[in-house]
Design a protein around this nucleic acid. Structure first.
Lengths: 195, 195, 195, 195
DNA sequence: AATGAATGAGTTTTCATTCAT
DNA sequence: GATGAATGAAAACTCATTCAT
């Protein structure tokens, strides 16, 4: 029994289902049917709302990026001073809603597919540049601009590497250890920067 | 014009072609036909020698892992003392034969697919554990065993993160900068370890 | 022009088409495409409903067995007394819907394939045991239990042999002669049993 | 190391391998490779000697028919009088070399394929007619010509049915019981014929 | 005589996508 | 709004067959 205003509900459900389906079946193998079934609708409806599989996947990636961005922004708004802002970015990357198996799988899949999926590459690039400029901006108030770039790149690589290595792990991701590792890296770099 | 003893030749050619085809078409999209064509043989022959697409891809991953391992082992054999050995592992990860677009694409694709491909996961796990124990062994001669674990994990995450971020980059990978970033990380950690 | 509730219609059509296609092309040679075309649908739809060629063929065999079973049961329900019941079983095996070229071809193909198709063997075994126990039960009211088994086995072998030999014949199967031959065998055996 | 006069050896080996391979894999599924491997040669050689898969299978059937024929002829040559000759034919059909699983499988497969394989049909027809005329000729010396035809057909159907039902059985074929069943049938028919 | 390399045609199978209802 | 029916294109895979050696 169709209801009014179902569209946003369905879209969200399908995007969530896509994330989980990618995690369960793998990015390459996942089918529209699996995603739709997981969302409790027919494959036809998924097409109706998204137009194509590629568009659904792009929307899914956009969603992952904006969720992660929101986590960071929310923490940034509560941070005081550049050092806290840097920590906010780090913590945001390992927020409970983000640093969990299904999201990690999907996120990395899009990351790696970025090479072949033009849309994925573009979206990811925008996000990465914004994140970097945020970090650099804050770090530059603590160390030289030149070093700020290096520290930002190092921290970003460390974050991405930790996400990537999570794939080989078994069991639940450990956000606290992850954050500690990145914070430790930044702290060491800043210390030196001041020496 | 069939010749004798072509099997190993073909197997090597197909594995090489797989790496390049994955880079060109994307891991999900690549077909046996494309790989075979690139190796200059028919798709049937690829099946004849590898049994299935999955087995060809697994063999390809195994090859990538062993090549990387060989680079590291070769550098380790020329290293003197634990500090040089750590550098050997780092440099091996960015050796010219390894840190190039096609290999990076394929490697990451397997990394991410590890979740769904049981064989890939297993192979990757074996490799990662061996690498880690190597690093820890050498680092433990420079800092406490506890810190050796932390540094090894941090360096490994940094290496993987740099590989991953290469996907978003344009142009040729810059091994020197990559190595400098990881060496810098290790140097900072060891300095502190001695303080 | 899709309609609702087509699944059972298509399944039945595909099973019927399978019987005819086996007869026309031979069990080994028949393809899903031929079966689907004969049913007026695409090969994709046949897979959609049956999952695989093997499952379609298994369903076809199940259908042949149940049709034959239904013919016998229907005749048994109208039979009075054990002697008539035995005749009902015999006549059922040569009922017009059963003893015709396409069904004979398909039936025998499954019979012979039974060795390699585990499912086919199982289904056939169930059917054969049920038929035998039916026959034995009735025959045992006319002759000793020991002889009932022998007569049931002989009659069953005769029936199967007549079906098999039909393959070498040209022209329409002759049910009347077939029935007469088996009835004659049973009659002779029962006569002696009473002597 | 090729030897002179290997051809007949290879041909026999390939035919024997075909019978066993059909039994093991099923008539539809068997491949030239499996047959050749079982004969200890390459698939190419099988083609070299037989020209094609179909010709190898036809040769195999011809071989099965001639072996069975030889068993019967050999027994006929030792038989005295028409009654013994009838028994010779029956016993020949269940000779140890014939009535065993692999031969039964292959034989029946050819029987059933007779519909689509023109050669199989022709060969089988020739054999069946010769067998029948043999039987009729002897039976006609014991009962009326008219009844001789009926008894020959009944016995032949019974023999074929017993072979066919062997497919559903597990364990080794029981030639003694099979022979007893057919002999019993013939005996009963002859008794009546004399009454 | 015999092999193993190689292919190409053909078959099964999968799925995104479309569309009538 | 939503579904299930249906397709067609593309892919994996198999295998008989050919041929150089």
């Amino acid at each position: 029994m169709p209801k009014l205003g179902m569209e946003p509900v369905r879209r969200r459900a399908l995007i969530g289902a896509a994330v989980e389906a990618i995690h369960e079946h793998g990015f390459c193998e996942v089918t529209m049917g699996q995603i739709a079934a997981r969302a409790g609708v027919s494959a036809g409806l998924a097409h109706h709302y998204f137009g194509s599989k590629e568009q659904l996947l792009t929307a899914t990636m956009r969603h992952l990026l904006s969720e992660l961005g929101a986590e960071i922004v929310s923490r940034l708004s509560r941070a005081e001073g550049p050092r806290q802002r840097v920590s906010a970015v780090i913590a945001g990357n390992f927020a409970p809603g983000q640093f969990r198996p299904a999201v990690i799988s999907a996120w990395l899949a899009f990351y790696v597919q970025a090479e072949s999926l033009a849309d994925a590459r573009r979206l990811h690039g925008i996000y990465a540049r914004r994140l970097r400029s945020n970090l650099v901006h804050d770090l530059a108030r603590l160390v030289s601009r030149e070093r700020a770039f290096a520290v930002a790149d190092g921290a970003a690589a460390l974050v991405d590497g930790i996400w990537l290595r999570q794939v080989l792990r078994v069991g639940e991701p450990d956000a606290a250890t992850a954050i500690a590792m990145v914070e430790d890296y930044v702290a060491l770099q800043l210390e030196r920067g001041r020496m």
